[in-house]
Write a protein that binds this DNA or RNA. Structure first.
Length: 586
RNA sequence: GUGCCGGUAGCUCAGCUGGACAGAGCAACUGCCUUCUAAGCAGUAGGUCGCGGGUUCGAAUCCCUCCCGGCAUGCCA
């Protein structure tokens, strides 16, 4: 799979490298006690952020002043001579020139722009798809291109949301969901073998508390004086569940043994909560390939097995009636409890077993976990555990997402799970809409904490860019509607008439889509692709305003029409990728 | 105290593997609808890039001190 944009960028890097090499060989440039490889490794081709400086750019002259002991202007003059000689190695370069004291800027010819318009057509819905997933490796938290091309794409498990099933999902889950889902989509488009998973914490301590809370609320229905535990779940949802249980069983469980009553309430309530989560997420267009139940790890003995494995590696000791993991051996501040005094394994123990299952039972190459920032303290000890189990911790990539506050009428509602006052996901999605929510959450970098203003998200202007993008699509759709496409032979067009600034910039933006997808996936950051969409929409609107499609020149009309068709295809592909709806009218 | 994330225009944020005048949107002001959807386009105004050092030909970007905000630091998950 190859794309003109990506190939040209690579080719230009080769030309620059070749030209520098020739300049050195001819002694016109002399390296100052530096190995040539060090210089060549620094060659990278950028896209000038300011349009009007050509399509591609190299700053090699600026960064090599120290290597050659010459001013950038002189170095660039020398390199340019050789570039001019080598330019014909790429058929798309019109010329290269020096600008702003040493930048070597490459301007593309009309063949380039014509070919791009046709290229999009050839790929159709697959435009932007790549086999990056077979030719990369995870290094320092980002994917980098690798020389090792594997026949099989990397097998990735991405786990996200994994909301606690003891209560309704909240706004924080909405951000994690939007982000995780878009990352998964990016990975799929980039040729990884991706499975999306929700980890259901249906066992352990918090389910015990869930049961205690339910039991207390159930008892309170029949006896107002029944005591509610201090650390119980205080949300209304618990009362409602207890009430519906009582509606069916009445006081049948009041005189039952406490453990029996608790179990009955849990078995009644948990499936209801999980079903509700599935429904809400589905409305949010998130569908998981697998729901993994923590209780499985208890039932099949995986937790015991993993603790035993850690023990065999002398990473475990007993103290004060607990089983500890010796995390201090890895430079942590303190040792972590795996099994409590009461015999119940901690979340940490279960999570080690879960990751053991991901890597060694199900054989994923890479696992990505999307976690709220409040979990970040869990990362390093998790990686310690992987080391002991013989799993390279670099194979686990954890994305921590900063928390979200909701702003209503200028007032902040801080998200907080425990007190039951957190913004609920279902209400939130209903109010701002799926498209807006998904887009806004993916627009901002996940490292920044977010104040989500509900009023702004509902507005139909650029405070909410999704409308801006959809509107660009709708405007082009309305142009396309006015033509009878069956009567036009697009193959016969002379597309070189698409040579205005508006047209060339739009085409160039379209050409970079496959590149942008890969750049986003490398950093596992969809905000890049969201901003690309806004830029693309902006160029569409400019073109729309400045250039009339239907005009007296038939070749020009149809060429512009074809450009509209290709641009709307790319917008559609991009919106589909992040699962945002594509309206025909607005 | 220690660790992680952030501090860029009045507001919300891009830019952060060092490089071309620090960019968008919102809010303010000025133009543009008898022609394919004005949910749009063009323009004006607005900045000690938290403070102070350092490295460099060159720093919002890299390093250090400090200040401010959020999160974590549970036998919660």
């Amino acid at each position: 799979m190859s794309y003109i944009f990506i190939d040209v960028r690579k080719k230009i890097a080769e030309i620059v490298g070749q030209s520098v090499k020739e300049a050195i060989d001819s002694k016109e440039l002399v390296l100052n006690f530096v190995s040539p490889d060090k210089l060549f490794s620094k060659i990278s081709i950028e896209i000038p952020n300011n349009r009007g400086y050509g399509e591609f750019s190299s700053n090699i002259a600026l960064i090599s002043t120290g290597f050659f002991r010459l001013p950038a202007s002189e170095i660039s003059e020398i390199i340019l001579k050789y570039i001019n000689k080598n330019c014909n190695l790429c058929g798309f370069i019109e010329f290269c020139k020096i600008e702003n004291g040493g930048f070597l800027n490459f301007y593309m010819n009309s063949t380039f722009f014509c070919k791009i318009v046709k290229e999009i057509d050839n790929f159709g819905d697959d435009y932007g798809n790549s086999d990056f997933g077979s030719m990369c490796e995870l290094n320092n938290n980002t994917f980098i291109e690798s020389n090792k091309y594997s026949k099989m794409p990397k097998k990735i498990l991405i786990e996200y949301v994994s909301a606690n099933p003891t209560g309704p999902m909240h706004i924080g889950n909405a951000r994690l969901g939007a982000l995780g889902d878009c990352i998964a989509q990016l990975l799929l488009k980039s040729g990884f073998a991706v499975d999306k998973e929700f980890y259901v914490n249906d066992a352990g301590n918090q389910i015990e508390k869930f049961g205690q809370s339910l039991s207390a609320r159930y008892e309170q229905i029949f006896d107002e004086k029944a005591i509610f535990p201090d650390d119980g779940y205080k949300g209304e949802d618990i009362k409602i569940l207890a009430k519906s249980f009582a509606d069916i069983f009445n006081d049948k469980y009041i005189n039952e043994d406490y453990e029996v009553r608790k179990r009955a309430l849990i078995d009644f309530s948990l499936p209801k909560n999980i079903e509700k989560m599935k429904n809400d997420l589905e409305k949010y267009k998130i569908i998981f390939d697998n729901w993994f139940y923590e209780s499985q790890l208890y039932k099949n003995g995986d937790i015991e097995k993993v603790v035993k494995l850690l023990k065999e590696n002398s990473a475990v000791f007993e103290s004060e009636g607990c089983t500890f993991f010796r995390t201090t051996d890895f430079g942590e501040d303190k040792n972590e409890v795996l099994i409590r005094k009461n015999g119940i394994p901690t979340y940490f123990a279960a999570d080690i077993a879960y990751h053991f299952n991901k890597f060694l039972i199900r054989n994923y190459d890479i696992c990505i976990n999307v976690w709220g920032a409040d979990h970040h303290g869990h990362i390093s000890r998790m990686k310690c555990a992987l080391k002991v189990l013989g799993i390279d911790p670099n194979r686990l990539k954890i994305i921590t997402v900063q928390l979200v506050n909701v702003i209503r009428n200028g007032e902040i509602n801080k998200m907080s799970k425990r007190d039951g006052r957190a913004e609920k996901l279902d209400r939130f999605i209903e109010e701002v809409g799926v498209d807006s929510a998904r887009f806004i959450f993916n627009m901002q970098n996940f490292n920044s904490k977010m104040d989500f203003d509900v009023e702004l998200a509902k507005k139909n202007d650029m405070s909410n860019p999704i409308y801006y993008i959809q509107y660009a699509y709708v405007r082009f759709a309305s142009i396309i509607r006015t033509f009878d496409l069956n009567k036009i032979d697009f193959n016969k067009l002379n597309l070189s008439v698409l040579n205005s600034t508006e047209e060339k910039e739009l085409i160039f933006k379209l050409s970079s889509f496959p590149y942008e997808v890969i750049e986003s996936v490398k950093k596992l950051n969809p905000s890049k692709i969201s901003r690309y969409m806004i830029d693309l929409a902006s160029l569409c609107h400019k073109f729309y305003t400045e250039k009339r499609v239907e005009n007296s020149d038939e070749n020009l009309s149809y060429s512009r029409l074809l450009l509209c068709i290709q641009a709307s295809k790319v917008i559609k592909t991009a919106l589909n990728m992040i699962k945002i709806s594509i309206p025909k009218y607005m």
